[in-house]
C-alpha cells in the first residue's frame, strides 16, 4: 500500500517562545487490520502504519506505536513546546517498509 498515501498536518506557522502549540496529523491509509476476510473467506493480510513520530529540531515530541486497532486514516492530536524557530518533522512507518514524511516550519516571533 504505497499509492495514495497522503500525510496532512495542521500546525501553526508562528509561536511565541515557550508556547505550547497543538498539532493535528492525519494520513490516508487503509490500516488493514488482518482480522477481516474477503468475499471468499480468505483473511486479508495485515497492512498498517506501525509507528509515527514527531520531532521538533531533532527533539522527540511524541513517538507512537500503532496497533491494528487504530482506525483507518490514522489521526493524532498532541502538543509540543516551542522554544526556538525550526521545523517539525513528522514520520510515518508502514508495515511494508515505506516511510512517509512531512516537514512544517515554525517561527518564533
Amino acid at each position: 500500500m504505497a499509492s495514495g498515501v497522503k500525510p496532512r498536518v495542521k500546525s501553526p506557522k508562528t509561536a511565541s517562545a515557550g508556547e505550547v502549540v497543538t498539532l493535528k496529523t492525519l494520513i490516508s491509509h487503509p490500516m488493514e487490520s488482518g482480522q477481516r476476510k474477503d468475499s471468499d473467506g480468505n483473511v486479508i493480510p495485515r497492512s498498517i502504519i506501525n509507528r509515527f513520530t514527531c520531532e521538533l529540531n531533532g527533539n522527540m515530541v511524541v513517538d507512537v506505536t500503532l496497533e491494528p486497532a487504530i482506525s483507518t486514516n490514522p489521526y493524532f492530536e498532541f502538543e509540543a513546546k516551542v522554544d526556538a524557530t525550526g521545523e517539525f518533522k513528522f514520520t510515518w512507518y508502514d508495515d511494508d517498509g515505506d516511510v512517509y514524511e512531512d516537514i512544517q516550519a515554525i517561527e518564533v516571533a
Binding site: 497543538t22 511524541v62 513517538d63 491494528p68 490514522p74 489521526y75 498532541f78
Partner: peptide, 28 residues
C-alpha cells in the same frame, strides 16, 4: 481495548519537546 481480538491499541512515548503528556486519536 479489553474486548478486541488484539488488546493493544497504541503506545504514546513522550519526548523532551512534548508540550503536555496528552494525545488524541481514533480507534477501532
Amino acid at each position: 481495548a479489553a474486548g478486541n481480538p488484539t488488546p493493544g491499541v497504541a503506545t504514546f512515548n513522550f519526548g523532551p519537546a512534548a508540550g503536555s503528556q496528552s494525545a488524541s486519536t481514533r480507534i477501532r
